[in-house]
Amino acid sequence: MNASKTLEKTLVASPERKLEADADLAVVRQVQAGDVAAFDRLITKYRERVVGIVYNMTSNREDAADLAQDAFIKAFQSIHRFQGQSSFFTWLYRIAINSTLSHLRKNRLRAFFSLEAIREEDPVSKEVIDALTDKTGVGRDTFVRELQEKLNDAMQKLSINHRTVVTLFEIDGLSHQEIAAVMDCSVGTVRSRLHYAKQLLQAELQPYLPK
């Protein structure tokens, strides 16, 4: 029963997301009717998630800020073309991811990483760090910094599409169906990419995964 619920959550968008999409559509209609200030609500609502996705794909803080801003501006400029056939956040994510993929393809040979600090306010993250530092016995800050770099290296070894799938599913928490809609591919493709990406990450991060 519990497993089936988890499976359903990974496959299909949750009812909360649907309610959220309806609320977004109402705001979008206001913007389309000429209420430009209503778009600020959408920016405030989605800026952290969009920046988080772009940041985890580029591993660069400045690039993430610029690309996220460009994604919002593109969405604002073409919001009159949004007809509500998909949810607004799916549409916005698609714009952001396409911009990011284009940026990464252009600057494939030029990669500068500027990582954000891990906020330990999240209890799960704090417990993971606690468990790992206890086992290794190394200084906490040094270990967290090293782990962060290893994670970043492992992510950068993935192809752009695999990295995008992992980012959307594991970090942002989208379902397979939503990822397929955002990346304009089938759900099967999403699953196979996710499986392959996890295998690679598992191999890269083996020292941090005790048997």
């Binding site: 940041y55 803080r61 891990i118 468990a131 086992k135 992510m155």
Partner: peptide, 27 residues
């Protein structure tokens, strides 16, 4: 998932740390 000393740390737990990488309020 709540890892403790007796529980294995999975790949998903490590990736969860990426979610905690957030910019400062000044950003």
């Amino acid at each position: 998932m709540k890892p403790d000393s007796d529980q294995k740390i999975t790949l998903e737990d490590l990736l969860r740390l990426k979610r905690a990488e957030r910019p400062a309020p000044e950003f």
